[in-house]
Design a protein around this nucleic acid. Structure first.
Length: 290
RNA sequence: GGGUGAGUGGCAGAGUGGUCAAUUGCACCUGACUGUAAAUCAGGCGUCCUUGUGGCUACGGUGGUUCGAAUCCAUCCUCACCCA
């Protein structure tokens, strides 16, 4: 990769969730069927640690089970408890503790007592960082915010608090308000590949015909390479003719948009003005509908 | 000049008497996308409106056969290939 900055690797727990028809979960681990050749692969907490150590990332994630939405209390409870048992096994299996930080993943679905139990049990294991998993899995935004604001304050404040799988700009702001320090998401690059840019005035589907002769940048306020050098019309053209540079330029922009957004969020935290910033941002950008 | 084959919606290409406003692919338009199975997926795509088991116009042109024609016949036009 030739990337000289921090790297984080995920454990595959989310794939077990999102590719649910190709796997079998047991206490020992997960058997996965490859969609490429039908071959079977077995992932256990120990195997996942082995892989993540071999990849050599700076932050690695423990193997968890991501609960679908909605799930019954009973199912969620069992799933959460198994995730904690797997976290114990990950911790025991992880050897390269000097160079890699192993984070624990909180589960418990949308049940507050289960979330609380999950955090408490993981804290006992003394991970260098903690993540909230199992939200942003298709639930209404209200549910998301409710469980986020319940869980985040329970997490140790002297360690990174990571929200997995988020997301849209409005969700990122909500996360920051809740006290979250880090997030990750496929969204900026995925929507880029599908022809959409995030801008300070909302989403711009630059693939659409309306931008055919729009000679302005994706976002007037943006300082990224793409916005400084290319017009919406040209980017649209690249997308339409399936020229890979188009999605590359959009990806560069969307990633810069999000890092810029988080720069702003940090400034607003310093100013103790994050809630006002959110209000203004929602007005200009719009926000996720239920 | 002679012979053979072919002309279908933006393009390619099915269909060869009724179930055809016409399969499919591309192109085009719109939407979705939240710990990446994603340069993916879904819907729309003649035209008009009072949006309906609706009207109109359409398979090179014209004329015909038939209850009914993209489909059969005649003729004209155009294109491709072969022979002179």
């Amino acid at each position: 990769m030739n990337w000289d900055r921090p790297i984080l690797t995920d454990c595959g727990g989310f794939q077990v969730f999102s590719l649910s028809d190709l796997r079998t979960i047991t206490e020992e681990g997960v058997e996965f069927k490859s969609h490429l050749d039908g071959s079977k692969h077995f992932f256990s907490p120990e195997k996942v640690m082995e892989i993540e150590e071999a990849l050599g990332a700076d932050i690695i994630m423990s193997f968890d089970e991501c609960c679908p939405y909605p799930s019954t209390y009973e199912y969620t409870k069992n799933s959460m408890e198994r995730t904690t048992r797997w976290a114990v096994r990950c911790k025991e299996a992880h050897k390269n503790t000097e160079e890699q930080a192993l984070f624990g993943i909180i589960q418990g679905g949308f049940y507050e007592d289960l979330r609380k139990k999950s955090v408490e049990d993981l804290i006992k294991l003394d991970f260098p960082g903690y993540a909230i998993g199992g939200i942003s899995v298709g639930e209404p935004k209200e549910e998301f915010i409710k469980i986020l604001n319940f869980t985040a304050p329970l997490m140790p404040k002297n360690k990174p608090r990571y929200l997995m799988g988020v997301g849209t700009p409005d969700y990122l702001i909500e996360a920051a308000i809740a006290g979250i320090d880090m997030c990750d998401c496929v969204l900026p690059t995925r929507i880029a590949r599908n022809g959409t840019a995030m801008t300070w005035n909302g989403k711009v589907v630059v693939r659409n015909a309306t931008y055919e002769r729009d000679w302005g940048p994706l976002d007037k306020e943006c300082d990224c390479y793409t916005c400084k050098n290319y017009s919406r019309a040209y980017i649209r053209h690249l997308i339409k003719v399936n020229e890979i540079l188009g999605v590359r330029l959009l990806s560069i922009h969307n990633l810069r948009f999000l890092t810029k957004l988080m720069e702003r969020v940090r400034i607003e935290i310093e100013r103790d003005n994050l809630l006002n910033f959110k209000k203004d941002f929602y007005k200009k950008y719009g926000y996720t509908k239920e």
